[in-house]
């Protein structure tokens, strides 16, 4: 059964079988505006929590998306190469950014659940 977590940096993680699918929240895509490019991570890259995993670029600015937990990249959403606007139209669905194998599942305990995230964005 997949469980979804959120971060104060406006990312979501859906965790199933030790693999987290990571994206940005709908609130985040609204703040960024129309995305025109997503710089995807290399497969196999090891990330520590807080490392820049992906850069999303809107018409106006580039923004870092950080690794919410430690882990190793297992997949990048290559459909964003041809259609970065998927992040705008389906931030929590087809607009996911990458998948990572968790290094330490206990880090999930420090993340927000949906109610806490909704309270965070007010």
């Amino acid at each position: 059964m997949a469980k979804t977590y959120f971060t104060e940096d406006h990312e979501w993680l859906r965790v199933e079988g030790g693999i987290a699918t990571v994206g940005i929240t709908n609130y985040a895509q609204e703040q960024l505006g129309d995305l025109v490019f997503v710089e995807l991570p290399e497969l196999g890259r090891k990330l520590a929590k807080g490392d820049t995993a992906v850069v999303v670029e809107s018409v106006k600015a580039a923004s870092d998306v950080y690794a919410p937990v430690d882990g190793e990249i297992t997949e990048a959403n290559t459909s964003l190469s041809s259609d970065p606007s998927l992040v705008n139209s389906a931030a929590t669905g087809d607009g996911w950014l990458w998948k990572m194998k968790l290094a330490d599942e206990s880090q999930l305990e420090g993340l927000l659940d949906e109610a806490a995230y909704n309270a965070h964005i007010g």
Binding site: G33, D34, S58, V59, K60, N88
Partner: peptide, 12 residues
Amino acid sequence: PLTYPAGVMKEH
């Protein structure tokens, strides 16, 4: 005002 609900792409 940076953008309106239509978004920068549509506004442009």
